[in-house]
């Protein structure tokens, strides 16, 4: 399965072993022609119409604004419609530090996103805690709270780097399958099994 993204050559993506592995897995499992074509159509639509949630906590958020503005203009790729309501967004750019107090809010926001949903961790803070890793109040990487699809390092990453990350996400969306086969639901269920939510009531009982 060749993944095509306009404006960037395949070679530029070659360093991404993770996606190549995913594609190989898909090739082995084989697929019905009709379903495969339909999948391709749907994935084409999905990957070209990823609407971000307007979510920013700190410096990276400002670079995210710059991403939408005239010089970088993410509208060109179909990322245009930044929705404020998580119900209508497709992915979350976690631009900035997530701290202890924000973690449950952030988790809820993630749960409010409608399927299919993706998370991009933008910047050092979201990836690992960054410069604030040693702090008493900072979550050491948002992947302990929600499953993350793409990591964009940098402090803050340049808008070009954000584009690269967002295109990797597009690429990831393109190799997925809507009708059976590899889809992300299972991995997400595993994730939540490992990191269960403590119900509010349980805590109150304690």
């Amino acid at each position: 399965m060749e993944v095509k993204i306009k404006g960037m050559k395949k070679e530029d993506f070659k360093d991404n072993e993770y996606i190549d592995k995913l594609v190989d897995e898909l090739k082995q499992s084989g697929q019905n022609v009709v379903v495969g074509k339909l999948d391709q159509l749907i994935n084409w639509g999905r990957s070209n119409s990823l609407w971000p949630l307007t979510f920013a906590t700190s410096c990276c958020g400002i670079e995210f604004i710059c991403l939408g503005c005239a010089r970088y203009d993410m509208a060109r790729f179909g990322f245009e419609v930044a929705r404020s309501s998580p119900r209508q967004a497709d992915f979350m750019m976690v631009a900035g530090t997530i701290v202890h107090r924000m973690a449950p809010v952030f988790r809820r926001l993630y749960e409010q996103l409608a399927e299919p949903k993706y998370v991009i961790a933008v910047g050092g803070c979201a990836v690992s805690g960054g410069p604030f890793r040693k702090s008493y109040h900072v979550v050491k990487g948002i992947d302990t709270v929600v499953p993350v699809d793409v990591y964009i390092p940098g402090c803050p990453p340049r808008p070009e780097a954000m584009f690269y990350g967002m295109m990797q996400l597009q690429r990831k969306v393109k190799v997925e399958r809507f009708f059976g086969g590899v889809n992300r639901k299972k991995t997400r269920e595993d994730f939540f099994k490992e990191n269960p939510l403590i119900a509010e009531e349980e805590h109150v009982k304690e």
């Binding site: 906590t57 700190s58 410096c59 400002i62 900035g96 530090t97 701290v99 107090r101 924000m102 809010v105 410069p131 604030f132 040693k134 702090s135 008493y136 109040h137 900072v138």
Partner: peptide, 27 residues
């Protein structure tokens, strides 16, 4: 919701190391 404990972090770092935190609050 974005309290990162910069003041506490500074107490463990030398003066030149502290400077970069000052970029990251009012960026």
């Amino acid at each position: 919701y974005i309290h990162r404990g910069i003041e506490k972090l500074c107490e463990k770092l030398t003066y030149p190391q502290c400077i970069h935190f000052f970029d990251r609050q009012d960026y």
